[in-house]
Design a binder for these strands. Sequence first.
DNA 1: CAAAAATAGTTGCGTGCGCAACTATCTACT
DNA 2: AGTAGATAGTTGCGCACGCAACTATTTTTG
Lengths: 154, 154
Amino acid sequence: MAKAKWLTDAEMRAWRGFIERSADLINIITKDLEPYGLDGGDYQLLAMLSEAPGHKMKMCDLAQTLGLSRSGLTRRMDGVLKAKYVSRVGDQEDRRAVFAQITEKGLALIKKVAPHHVASVRRHMIDLLSPAEIAAFGTGFAKIGKQLSQKTKI
Amino acid sequence: MAKAKWLTDAEMRAWRGFIERSADLINIITKDLEPYGLDGGDYQLLAMLSEAPGHKMKMCDLAQTLGLSRSGLTRRMDGVLKAKYVSRVGDQEDRRAVFAQITEKGLALIKKVAPHHVASVRRHMIDLLSPAEIAAFGTGFAKIGKQLSQKTKI
DNA sequence: CAAAAATAGTTGCGTGCGCAACTATCTACT
DNA sequence: AGTAGATAGTTGCGCACGCAACTATTTTTG
C-alpha cells in the first residue's frame, strides 16, 4: 500500500483541473484562429519571430522556445514558408545554422490576427479569472518552468 | 491598430506561462510513466475506469471524460486491450453500446503505478506551488472548464 | 407503425510531431 | 594541424489523434 503522500482535495482539484482542461482550452483557442488560416503552432511561431530582434531567430532557439523538437520545427516551417509568412536566411557566422525570419506578409498577418487572438484568450481564460488567480497562474507556471528547465539543462 | 484590450503584464505572464509550460509539464510526467509500460493517456484511461462504478464505463462517456474523440478512444483501447488491462463488455440494454471494463490485471497495475505517478505530479507541479497557488489553480481551471462545457453543450 | 433522425462505435485517410539516422559544419583535445 | 566529439538542420519512419464516412442500433415523429 504505502500510498506515501497522496494528493489532498485541493491538490487534486489543481492537478485534475489542469490535466483535464488544458487540452480543451488550447483546442478552442486554436479553433478561433482557423478563420485566419493559422493554427496555434503557426501563431506562436509568427508571434515569436515578430518580437525577436531583426524579426529572426535561429531554428534551434526557435524550436526550444516553441517547445518543439528540431524535426518538428522543420515540418512546421513548411507551412509558413509556402505561405511566404517566413523566409529562411543563412547565418554568415555559423554555416550550419539557418535563421527563420518573418516576412512583411507575415508581420501584416499577425498584426491583423493578434487582436482577435487576444480576445479569444481573454474570453476563454483571462477574463474568467480573478486578479489573484491570474497572479497565481503567473508565479505558479514560472516555478514549474524553472524546475523543468533545470531538469533539461543537465 | 485598435488593439482593443491587450493583456497586462500579469495577464501575459499567466497566459504565456500556461501555454509555454503546460506541454512540457505533461510530457515530463508522461515520461515518468514509461518505465511501467504506460503513457499518460493509458494512465488516465485506467484511472478513470478504476474509479468508475462496476469498474466500467461506456466508450462514449469515457471518450468525453478523457477529452478524446470516439475514434481516438477506439485506437487508444487497442493498446490496453491487447495488454489485457481492459476488456470489452456489450451493453444488454443498448446493443449499440460497449462498456470498457478494467481487468484485475489492469487494477493491479494501476495500484502499483499510482504512487509513483502521484510522486511525479508532486515533484513537477504540486510541491512547487504555495497553498494559495494550488487553490487558485483549482478554482481557475474549474471556471475555465465550466465555460468550456457551456460552449460545447449548445 | 413506418420513415426519419439521432446515437454508438469502427475504419480510411490526413496531419503533426518525436526519435533515430544522416550530412554538414564547428569546437576541443593532443 | 588532425582527429574526435558536439551541434544545426533534414529526412524516414512510426504513433496518436481528429474528421468524414460507414454500419448497426435506438429514438422520434408524423
